[in-house]
Design a protein around this nucleic acid. Structure first.
Lengths: 341, 341
DNA sequence: CTGAAAGCGCTTACAG
DNA sequence: CTGAAAGCGCTTACAG
């Protein structure tokens, strides 16, 4: 036999028809147990593997999901936010468990937008990940909905379609941070992030934070807020600009760990001690958080669970089944380390 | 039109044959420029996308690569070594640039070994990544070679097939660390890692380290070596065991950054100051290295270049072309931070 | 339970 | 430069 074995080769050697080979290998209940055993053995001997291109073409499905990782266009190319890498890990695992393959793609600019993973039948559905600009997202969502592509999205809401989103309860996470600062007696707070509608996750975190402070008769002065994207450098610069304007505060909430880490660097360079002069809390609980100086207090998002929910919900969507909405908003958890007290 | 448009639909509306549509869309030089324009326009209007399953089946190739990430079975499931995540990022980018899709899979146990990505025509070639056990690897290599699967491997050599490997010059990296310690006057060295043939990368690092010390009339006493896999916890435990036996040293080389970070924790817990009492150097230059306490000196591997070379070499293999051997061993670079002096 | 046959949507000789 | 036709390797009605 030259080249790879086909189902016809197996049929030949097993003394059955090609249709029976196909049924036997796919576990059809129609096939006699004896026959199946024979087929499976021949297949193993000839090292036969079903050609996925052929079966996918015929069955009109791909048993493949695609994950698109949007990178903030303003962040530098080389460093992907570890948070999403961690999500990627758990998504990969969840896919494997469900028998799906996973295509991965980074979307750095808007022009190489790969909605066509689905349209070209390479994937049955798409998972969207990233701290992108929310406004940009809406156009992409429209395109996906338009082509009837199955997709789920991390973090950002699709108008009127809650079943398409899995997210952390960002607002509750923000409340936890405020509560922590209140307990510490540190209510002169700064916020570094982007509380605008461009970043729905960051602004939800801010909203919860601000609300909890207001419950306590406090609030974040607009002067003590600085915009940053989710990078160490951006957090550093934003904090520096605050300090350069002689803005003072005794607590700082970074909308992500990378931002908080950059903020700590800016504070320390300015001669301020963390947590003695300023308590700092981040958001994400990256692996680095434990190893910072000082170790960073933060709000942990459960990426394992998040990945599992994204995959589970996407498969529900593909299978036209009910999505588990109740578990699609994941509760975050405050982790107190040495950067706040 | 119901469902997705096919090339026949495009042919119909463009007033040409289906073969011409296929040629036009694939950029065949055979087709008239005028005709092509017409076809392309109709295709765009109908939102037509070539069905990858069909074209792959027919053309007998998939324009897809697969990356298999082997995890050390002894490491805990949730945390993937950030070094490989970073490699994954650069591989993804390199694939996209070459017009290939990327399938990703984590191989945690030996039984879900996905060599069949290639056999089932889902991928044209495979990239192997991970700090696995070298002995285990050999069996996998044999299987891949046996089925004539195209693959490249990071780090581990395939006997007599240098074209299948891309790696960092680990031995040279080890030399750099020894040289650094010698310059600091710290030659009472400990090594934490696995210098056995189970971990060819770690043992190459050790070999270069030891050689350079010997050039200087020194060496690493076997008592001052402790075995560890590439996790923080393992580095911590290994270092603790050394200290528990009252082994002393004034410099420590961790075979990876995670190991070195764990070692620092063990040293600090034992009341030793880094770098005052012990200089510590790691290997990899993870993103965390900069944020450690103290910031970790390390040997940087260029993951961007590594990913590019892996993809480039694999494509050469697939295209039956000469592999660029000269650039397949990447020079590492010593990064001195505060953990050594 | 099994087989013969159609067909998924393309690419690519072959003939003009 | 273009078209008619074969065929990639499967899955799945259809008939028995």
């Amino acid at each position: 036999m030259k080249g790879k074995a086909t189902s016809f080769d197996i049929a030949h050697y097993a003394g059955v028809s090609q249709s029976t080979v196909s049924r036997a290998l796919r576990g059809s209940p129609l096939v006699n147990e004896e026959t199946r055993r024979k087929v499976v053995e021949v297949a193993r001997k000839l090292n036969y593997k079903v050609d996925k291109n052929a079966s996918n073409l015929r069955a009109q499905q791909s048993s493949t999901l695609a994950v698109l990782l949007f990178e903030d266009p303003t962040s530098d190319e080389s460093q992907i936010n570890p948070f999403f890498l961690s999500m990627l890990g758990s998504i990969t695992r969840a896919c494997a468990k469900e028998g799906y393959d996973l295509l991965v793609s980074f979307q750095s600019s808007s022009n190489d937008w790969h909605a066509d993973y689905a349209e070209s039948h390479r994937a049955d559905g798409i998972i969207l990940l990233g701290y992108g600009d929310y406004i940009d997202y809406q156009a992409k969502f429209a395109r996906l909905l338009d082509t009837n592509t199955k997709f789920v999205c991390w973090g950002a809401n699709v108008d009127g379609r809650p079943e398409l989103t899995v997210s952390c309860d960002n607002q509750y996470g923000g409340r936890l941070v405020a509560e922590h600062f209140i307990e510490l007696g540190r209510t002169d707070c700064a916020f570094i992030g982007d509380a605008s509608h461009h970043s729905p996750e960051f602004s939800a975190r801010f909203k919860g934070f601000e609300q909890r402070l207001q419950d306590n008769g406090k609030h974040v002065s607009e002067r003590k807020m600085a915009t940053a994207i989710s990078t160490e450098e951006s957090g550093y610069q934003a904090t520096k600009s605050l300090l350069a304007n002689n803005i003072t505060f005794n607590a700082l909430f970074g909308a992500s760990d990378l931002i908080a880490i950059g903020a700590i660097r800016a504070l320390q360079e300015a001669g301020l001690r963390v947590p003695h002069d300023v308590s700092v809390v981040g958001f994400d609980d990256l692996a680095v958080a434990r190893f910072c100086t000082p170790p960073l207090s933060t709000v942990q998002q459960n990426t394992t669970l998040a990945g599992q929910m994204l995959v589970a919900n996407l498969l529900s969507l593909i299978g036209e089944q009910e999505v588990d909405l109740a578990n699609s908003i994941l509760p975050p958890q405050l982790i107190v380390r040495q950067s706040s007290r």
